[in-house]
């Protein structure tokens, strides 16, 4: 309303010939408002559910945020003290190394097995579809359930895995998969690989479907079959999908919490403690929400590096 009045005031004398133009302008402005209105739900959603938590978490990491803050609302500013405390803690380097090992190991295992299975399922054979959907099973189970079952499978005394190995005569006494400091991280990694395979297979299989068959025909005429075809046709054509799978995989794996909590709770003797479990323990077991937030932000920063890599890889894929 006001804008119209102002416009009228600015141009008191309206030439008659301008009328259609004016109507056109009004129409465009109205359209722009509608465009904004369509954006409002998305913007409001992002601000509420992504913007607010991120900002709050960053603020929290600079505050002495304790249980009493919830009641009194008082959280004194402490600058970088929370970051200094968590980084100088003796557990920080352990958690960093474990996070790196866990992520690298999980990604390598998931990707290699996932790619192998995807290539395998590309062939046509009976029961292909059923087997492929069965492969999704680990993805469909709640993580709490899978970790409870794996905890039982990997138990030293009555676990299914040790019973199986003993019945084959491979071992004579149970292997302490989850209670030995040298095996626990590998065991947790193996479970995480099992959970991650469906994601890798699904995405890589989709990528493989997009490679035109003519390429393989042309390659086979040139004598490239089997491994050579994979090396010179499949791999280069799959590259964009591979980069997406790897980067998303890293981001998903960095933040893994429930599996570790369910299997070992960070033990034995902190040998499966990661940045994520450490952040959880600080916030929700020791009630040091400021330090927990600082630890969480370090994890977010690490993820961010990979998220940027992902966006760049994606852009390059689009450019190509």
């Amino acid at each position: 309303m006001t804008t119209t009045v102002q416009e009228l005031a600015r141009n008191p004398v309206q030439p008659v010939t301008d009328a259609p133009m004016k109507r056109h302008q009004g129409y465009r402005r109205r359209e722009r408002i509608y465009q904004w209105l369509f954006l409002v739900p998305a913007v409001a959603y992002l601000a509420l559910f992504f913007g607010y938590p991120v900002v709050k978490n960053v603020l929290m990491s600079f505050q002495d945020y304790s249980t009493s803050t919830f009641y009194t609302g008082e959280a004194p500013w402490v600058g970088f003290a929370n970051y200094a405390t968590v980084i100088s803690s003796s557990l920080f380097s352990t958690a960093m190394i474990n996070t790196a090992l866990f992520t690298a190991g999980s990604i390598a295992g998931q990707f290699i097995l996932g790619l192998g299975l995807a290539v395998f399922f590309k062939r046509r054979f009976p029961l292909n579809g059923i087997l492929r959907s069965l492969l999704l099973l680990p993805w469909l189970l709640p993580l709490i359930v899978s970790s409870a079952v794996w905890r039982w499978i990997l138990d030293k005394d009555g676990g299914a895995l040790n019973n199986f190995l003993e019945s084959l005569g491979i071992i004579s006494t149970g292997i302490p998969w989850l209670t030995s400091t040298s095996l626990a991280l590998a065991a947790v990694m193996a479970v995480n690989i099992w959970i991650g395979i469906p994601f890798n297979v699904t995405v890589l299989y989709g990528g493989l479907q997009d490679i035109p068959d003519e390429l393989y025909e042309a390659a086979s005429l040139d004598g490239a079959t089997g491994w050579k075809a994979f090396r010179h046709v499949t791999w280069p054509m799959l590259r964009p999908v591979v980069s997406v799978v790897l980067v998303l995989g890293v981001v998903y794996t960095l933040k893994v919490l429930d599996i570790i909590l369910g299997l070992t709770n960070g033990g034995p003797a902190n040998s499966t403690q990661t940045i994520a479990t450490q952040s959880y323990a600080l916030s929700f077991q020791n009630f040091k929400f400021g330090e927990g937030a600082a630890m969480g932000n370090i994890l977010v920063l690490i993820s961010l590096v990979f998220a940027v890599l992902y966006l760049r890889a994606n852009r390059r894929a689009v450019d190509e």
Partner: peptide
């Protein structure tokens, strides 16, 4: 005398 599973 105690299983090392006690750790978990």
């Amino acid at each position: 005398s105690v299983s090392s599973s006690a750790l978990n």
